[in-house]
Design a protein around this nucleic acid. Structure first.
Length: 422
DNA sequence: TCTGGGGTCCTAGGACCC
DNA sequence: TCTGGGGTCCTAGGACCC
């Protein structure tokens, strides 16, 4: 290979994070639930062996989990985010070219070398991350990112690979023949179905697919995937994170909400979250989108969903300036008589706060709003989220979602730091 | 009773302009 | 009688990812 890509992927990441501060969970089945304790989004190997499916609704497997004494956690993104940062920081110390791809994955570019040597490098990264952060990872190495994904899957599947697998070009076809077309990175449910109805069942079939047909039916992204399987690198390493295009915040409610006032509280509350995220990244938004929807799983009740986008008078990240237009969106969208399950907000048209265009007819410039927001953010950072918040976000918040099995913020909050007793 | 949330990219189609 | 062609921008919707 001219140069190789390594994919470092944390094993069952959320579960590994929970186990880090609860060693008694080692070897025991553990699952982590999505927001609202909705469905299973991470499973330990023991939980997988019990037949708990990825994405399975919690209410449907609750009995099975209880019967087998499976330890259940709500998502603790504060904890996962911090441990992710530690893994990625270490990786960047060890390697010059790193792309953080997701909370639990990173691509690394390695100089060309013999497979045995690449495997040795993979083992080294794996061991250092295990020793210094405590999170187990798998490493897949190949000529392209898509093939590195395949290699990583094999590193995880076969215990005798020791968590590291190098997919050398000589063995690519034999390996791809054993990989289902739906398991390839970039091929989701719809495309997998389409490919199978046309007789392409394995990664090898896709690799040998007709370019014009792939381009037409799967767009350029599908063709790129096929090229990558052929060893032609089409996806390069993105070391600097790309500029964001949007910031969103939404939640499902703990119960259905029909009351306009409660919807408004939830909206302001999520809007505040999104605006805070925006300011933390030094951005302002030029447009705002609000959407709401009823419960799509209740086929028997009347369904309604809608969204509304407004262009803001001026780009801003100040919550008080965003609230009135957001309220107007809700007023336009709201239909009485429905049970709503979810409301959300998307801030888009993002640009750096410093580059904002001047205003022709400003009365009280954006400076005042900015200073206010800065002060609020500082207070909330020091004394905890929501110490200062918009009155419109509500105090009781009966619509709040569930997090019944939350673990401690063991690495980011002094009050929740683990205590060691001898 | 109970089914997550936050992103990206691509394409098609319409509006608009010269 | 005659009904171009090319370009840009925007939006909605689909598909995919973790």
């Amino acid at each position: 290979m001219p140069s190789a890509y390594a994919l470092i992927d944390c094993n069952n990441f959320y579960v590994s994070c929970e186990r880090l501060f609860a060693p008694r969970l080692a070897g025991r089945p553990v699952v982590v639930l999505s927001n609202n304790d909705g469905c299973v989004i991470a499973r330990s190997e023991e939980a997988k062996a019990l037949g708990v499916a990825m994405g399975e609704p919690y209410f449907r497997c609750r009995n099975l989990l209880r019967r087998h004494g499976v330890q259940v956690f709500s998502s603790n993104y504060t904890l996962y985010g911090d441990l992710s940062r530690r893994v990625m920081d270490l990786l960047r110390e060890l390697e010059p070219e790193v792309e953080v791809y997701s909370i639990d994955e990173a691509f690394v570019r390695l100089p060309a070398a013999a497979p045995a040597e690449l495997a040795e490098q993979g083992r080294r990264l794996r061991e250092l991350i295990r020793r210094w952060v405590g999170i187990p990872v798998s490493v897949g190495i190949a000529a392209t990112k898509t093939l590195a994904k395949v290699a990583n899957r094999l590193a995880k599947q076969e215990p005798d690979h020791g968590g590291v697998f190098v997919l050398a070009s000589a063995s690519v076809d034999a390996v791809l023949a054993g990989v289902g077309v739906g398991e390839i990175w970039g091929i989701g449910r719809r495309r997998a179905d389409l490919l199978r109805t046309h007789g392409l069942r394995t990664a090898l079939d896709l690799k040998r697919g007709d370019d014009a047909w792939l381009r037409r039916r799967l767009t350029v992204t599908g063709l790129r995937t096929a090229m990558e399987l052929r060893g032609v690198s089409c996806l390069t390493l993105a070391e600097a994170p790309a500029a964001r295009h949007s910031v969103a915040s939404s939640r499902s409610f703990g119960r259905l909400v029909s009351d306009r006032g409660e919807l408004g509280e939830a909206l302001i509350s999520y809007l505040s979250l999104a605006a805070e995220k925006l300011r933390r990244q030094g951005l302002v938004a030029a447009s705002l989108h609000v959407y709401l929807t009823t419960d799509r799983f209740q086929a028997t009740t009347p369904q309604y969903s809608g969204g509304r986008t407004v262009i803001l008078a001026r780009p801003t990240g100040a919550t008080p300036e965003l609230i009135p237009p957001a309220r107007r969106c809700l007023e336009a969208l709201f239909r009485p008589g429905y049970g709503y399950r979810k409301i959300g907000v998307v801030l888009a048209g993002l640009s750096p706060a410093g580059m904002r265009q001047g205003e022709l007819f400003a009365s009280s410039g954006p400076a005042a709003a900015e200073a206010l927001m800065e002060a609020c953010d500082r207070v909330n950072q020091r004394w905890g989220r929501d110490t200062i918040r918009s009155g419109g976000a509500g105090l009781v918040r009966p619509w709040r979602n569930r997090r019944e099995y939350l673990s401690a913020a063991a690495t980011t909050n002094w009050a929740e730091i683990p205590v060691v007793t001898a």
